[in-house]
Simulated assay, not measured.
Amino acid sequence: MKKLDIYISKNFIKSFLLSLIAFINIFILSQLFKIIRYITEGRMTILQSLTYILYLLPKIFIEVTPLAILLGSLMCINKMASNLEIISLKTSGISFRRIVRYPIIISLLISCIVFQVMNKVYPSTLLKSRALRAGREISERVMPITKKNAFLRTEENIVYYIKNIDRVKNSAETLQIIKLDKDFKNIEEIITAKNAEFDSNKNIWKLKEVVINNFKNKTQKTKKNYEDITLNKNPSEFITIQGDPDELTNAEIASAIRNIRTTGGDVKEPMSVLGKRYSFPFASFIVSFLGLSLGSRYVRGASAISIALSVGLGYSYYIVQASFEALSVNGILNPFISGWIPNVIFLGLGIYFMRKAEY
């Protein structure tokens, strides 16, 4: 790294940190009225309120980092432009892309930090902050005792539908069990039962008031009691641990998605959260192109313009990102595609302005 790179990098990091601290303070101040109300209502003590603010810091850091990168980029390069340093460097044959190389690399590293915070730190602190706000003890997630409309597909190509299941009582009401062929195309048998109990010793469901429709033999039978050794799925396998996807790590969300798909649930919300986890952290890297290129020309009253540009462009990104996130939650777009569309749009704008800054 040359002296020029060290000089630019130091100024960029300094501008970024000042912007980050300023935005974090603004967000904390916006929460103070709520916190004061929690204290006066007796929902929190002063010590708990301070802990609550600490738990909010990862969330605030994630949300304001793109704005801080944008403003820091504008301030750093605009200061150099106002001192005629940019013009001097260009005149000496150094391209603008060469000038901003290290700020862009630093922005990428900051994006990687945001990714790790969003994955490993944010979920646990969000869970704890919500517990404090609700005035309850922080506890481990527990598996629900009952579930309605439970689905499960087994490796033996058996599909269960159970209207009500209780994993503690090992009981179920209104069952429909569909057996398919090995290619999972044709239905061989449908078994319906009014209720059932799971025998833990035999590891088998004992069905009651049963109707068996065999499509291979084209027969129908009714039985008061029925047992089948292939019907051996434990009630706990029909129920997954419930929770807000935002409170889970990436690995836990991926695992939850697999479990939800197995039990026939809706995966749009956790998929949307996972898509955002892999796209939003890199907004900091992408907006750096905009900040660095737009700050390259000296303009009188640059500080006010820098702040206005950073706020305007930053919130434009958030609006576009939220719009595409809504499309993914509604199942209109793939969550990973919708998460990266805003990044691609703003990266395209950044590259365009970066090319303009060369002249």
Rank of each mutant, 00 (worst) to 15 (best):
V273I: 14
V273M: 06
L274V: 07
G275L: 08
K276D: 11
K276E: 11
R277S: 04
R277D: 01
R277Q: 13
R277F: 12
R277T: 03
R277P: 05
Y278K: 03
S279W: 10
F280W: 14
F280D: 13
P281T: 04
F282R: 06
S284F: 08
F285N: 07
F285P: 00
I286N: 01
I286H: 08
I286A: 02
V287G: 03
S288T: 10
S288Y: 10
S288C: 09
S288P: 04
F289N: 04
F289Y: 15
L290E: 05
L290R: 03
G291T: 08
L292R: 02
L292W: 00
L292E: 00
L292D: 00
L292P: 00
L294K: 00
G295S: 09
G295A: 05
G295Q: 02
S296C: 04
R297T: 12
R297Q: 12
Y298H: 09
A304T: 12
I305P: 00
S306Q: 06
I307Q: 01
I307M: 10
A308L: 14
A308D: 03
S310C: 03
V311A: 09
G312Y: 10
G312D: 06
L313E: 02
G314L: 02
Y315E: 09
Y315V: 10
S316V: 01
S316W: 00
Y317R: 04
Y318W: 15
I319D: 07
V320L: 11
V320A: 07
V320T: 14
Q321K: 06
Q321F: 14
A322D: 14
F324N: 00
F324M: 04
E325M: 05
A326I: 06
S328H: 08
S328R: 13
S328Q: 09
S328K: 07
V329T: 09
V329D: 12
V329F: 14
G331S: 12
G331D: 10
P335E: 09
F336K: 10
F336V: 11
I337H: 05
S338G: 09
S338V: 05
G339C: 07
G339Q: 08
G339R: 12
W340I: 03
W340Q: 03
W340T: 06
